[in-house]
Design a protein around this nucleic acid. Structure first.
Length: 406
RNA sequence: GGGGAGAUACCCAAGCGGUCAACGGGAUCAGACUGUAAAUCUGACGGCUGAAGCCUUCGAAGGUUCGAAUCCUUCUCUCCCCA
């Protein structure tokens, strides 16, 4: 089965430049394709999963893939679809980010063969301005660039010349990859459409080569929220930033209407299995959700961590039972000798940001110790509250934290 | 370079000398309903507090006043129009 079929079947498709020619090209032999990732943070997040899965499907179907780290482009910052300029990152930060992101990529892609992980700073950093303008800049029409939808918001609020150049650099990346690796396909989220088109056009003008662009849909949840956001912010792939437990929770808490779509896009489960999970109704949908959570967590954190997260979830939300794997904080036994204020405990655990917030939680009846509502603001946790060495704090219905003795 | 508009809490956005910790909306949190779902309803939503109260906040620094987010001065930044 070609990856085109897979993409179509699994929803990795929003638009493409010239579908017929691409199909012919794919059928006539192996191709090389790439996606760029700007290292704007020290970890990838859930928003990067679709492109990662896309590349992975491509590689599994036998194509050569290139994951391009935008060490050079991230110095500029892509204004596409953004309402304001990002804060500038130093070269050192970007380098450090690349180092941390690399192993995350390796969970999806195999760079042992001829597939590559490259950094575009390799060719962007030493560009000569005048040469670049004369060789590349002359192929770009400002009129046309301004007409793109992606800049619309920025034309209202302001777009610096720096950012306006981003598209040229991304187009130049594609040109360079085309030249070096005969890379003929660039993919990306649909917000990248204009940038991708620019690259395709540039390759045609400069080398008279045919190149293709392909975009993935930009996901929102069924009720319209942004994918990959929680109250705490982005859901990261780095376990230090988003623990496997939280990661698992993110997926198991998805909306009913999203389960099948998420299984399709974010797991490698065969489609017939996805569909049978998708047929579940009512409370049974939870089975599909737990499968989704287990699969996605396994991909990022490994099977073992995923199973731990599942076990923790079962012990908290299922038939009780104990688990070591609930997020926890260790306490010095001395702290409990005179008892620890209940609000302090909630603050230390990170469940509440301030005493006021903890008090509010209590007033609203959402503050629990060992699954009992606590309503006394002066309550002090002592050793007697520890059951087998742990006290279970709970804020609201589903935020848990354990206190354990050191 | 010239002219104009603006900067308010997580975001948007009122307020334009006292009744302002600051209308309203969104986000968020809690409760009810459920299935760790969505939708809906109710409540909360700067910090310290049982509360009264106190403290910090309306771009920054000064000033006027019994009293300022609101008036004045200087500064910083943003946007728009013209060159």
């Amino acid at each position: 089965m070609t990856f085109l079929k897979t993409f179509e079947e699994r929803g990795f498709f929003k638009q493409t430049t010239h579908p017929e020619e691409l199909k012919n090209r794919v059928e006539s032999g192996r191709i090389c394709a790439y996606i760029g990732f700007d290292p704007t943070a020290d970890s990838l997040h859930v928003g990067h999963l679709i492109p990662l899965m896309g590349l992975a499907h491509l590689q599994r179907s036998g194509q050569r893939v290139i994951a391009l780290m935008g060490g050079g482009t991230a110095m500029i910052g892509d204004p596409s679809g953004k309402t304001e300029m990002r804060k500038m990152l130093t070269e050192q930060q970007l380098e450090a980010n690349v180092v941390k992101i690399k192993p995350q990529m390796e969970r999806f892609l195999d760079f042992e063969g001829d597939s590559e992980l490259i950094n575009n700073s390799e060719w962007l950093r030493n560009l000569n301005y005048i040469d670049f303008l004369r060789d590349i800049g002359r192929h770009f029409s400002v009129n046309r660039m301004l007409s793109f939808e992606t800049y619309k918001a920025r034309l209202e609020t302001g777009l610096s010349f720096l950012e306006f150049n981003y598209q040229l650099l991304q187009a130049y990346d594609f040109l360079e990859l085309n030249k070096r690796y005969d890379c003929v396909l660039q993919m990306g989220g649909d917000d990248q459409w204009a940038n991708i088109l620019a690259g395709v056009g540039l390759i045609r003008r400069v080398h008279q080569n045919e190149a293709f662009g392909w975009t993935y849909p930009l996901l929102t949840t069924a009720s319209g929220r942004k994918m990959g956001k929680t109250e705490k912010g982005a859901v990261w792939l780095d376990p230090e930033k988003t623990s496997p437990y939280e990661y698992y929770q993110y997926w198991i808490n998805c909306e009913d209407a999203d389960v099948e779509k998420f299984l399709t896009l974010f797991t490698f489960l065969p489609m017939d299995e996805v569909q049978s999970l998708g047929r579940l109704q009512g409370a049974e949908i939870r089975e599909a959700k737990s499968r989704l959570a287990l699969e996605t967590a396994s991909l990022i954190h490994g099977k073992e961590e995923a199973l731990k997260a599942e076990k923790a979830a079962k012990s908290l939300f299922g038939d009780g039972g104990e688990s070591e794997d609930i997020p926890s904080t260790q306490l010095d036994a001395i702290l409990l000798q005179d008892g620890m204020g209940i609000f302090d405990a909630f603050r230390k655990s990170g469940l509440c940001k301030s005493n006021g917030e903890a008090r509010r939680l209590m007033n609203q009846g959402g503050l629990y110790l060992n699954n009992e509502v606590v309503s006394d603001p002066d309550y002090r946790i002592t050793a007697q509250d520890l059951l087998e060495g742990t006290a279970l704090l709970r804020a609201g219905k589903k935020r848990y934290h354990r206190l354990t003795l050191q």
